[in-house]
């Protein structure tokens, strides 16, 4: 996997930031699946929920999941499934099999987005510089997500913990731009030794 990453990622030459206040690093590649299923198709939703063994998120900003994977709310009939690369084809095959008679769409979007992790006590301050989200209402706690933009890049932000740890997914072609922007904005909080 590591070789793949070095070969493919536009962030391969970037230097991760690690400091007490703020950290920025690129995440390992994982499986990402976009699932569309109608809001009122209770039968299909039940099949999906039984397969995952947890409920689909119900409203904006919700995330559900367990140790094996997570499902993020993207829209009233749209979800992003995060899973390990090994598990991806399993999920695709099983859902396609179980949902045969339903109206749905399952798309492998693993390669659409790169994910970088911004963490540390100053991360909300960094994000607030160019993200219009109200951080007193959105992304307040563990397992919440929000779609918005940071500077010029449309992003999906996923809060992983009650500590400020954010996974920011961005379109592949915007990754380098966003990384540079985040690194630049973080620089004032990095305490040099």
């Amino acid at each position: 996997m590591n070789n793949d990453k070095e070969h493919l990622s536009p962030l391969v030459d970037k230097i991760a930031i690690n400091s007490d206040n703020i950290s920025l690093q690129q995440n390992e590649f994982i499986g990402k699946l976009n699932l569309r299923v109608k809001e009122n198709d209770l039968k299909a939703r039940e099949v999906i929920e039984n397969y995952f063994d947890y409920n689909l998120p119900k409203s904006s900003g919700e995330v559900s999941g367990n140790d094996e994977g997570r499902v993020l709310w993207l829209g009233p009939n749209e979800y992003l499934i995060l899973c390990s690369e090994q598990n991806k084809s399993n999920i695709i095959n099983n859902l396609n099999e179980n949902l045969k008679t339903s109206f749905y769409a399952l798309t492998d979007v693993s390669d659409y987005y790169l994910t970088m992790r911004l963490s540390g006590p100053k991360s909300i301050e960094v994000l607030s510089k160019a993200c219009p989200l109200n951080f007193e209402k959105n992304l307040l706690k563990k397992n919440s997500c929000a779609q918005s933009y940071i500077s010029k890049a449309t992003v999906l932000i996923d809060r992983l913990s009650d500590e400020p740890i954010f996974d920011i997914s961005v379109r592949w072609s915007f990754a380098e731009y966003l990384w540079d922007w985040l690194a630049d904005s973080s620089s004032e909080f990095v305490i040099s030794e």
Binding site: S60, G61, G75, P132, K137, S148
Partner: peptide
């Protein structure tokens, strides 16, 4: 800030729309 209420996401900044 000019805020618009999305029927799905709630109140967000107008630049998102």
């Amino acid at each position: 800030m000019f805020v618009i209420k999305c029927p799905y996401c709630g109140e967000r900044d107008q630049t998102e729309f």
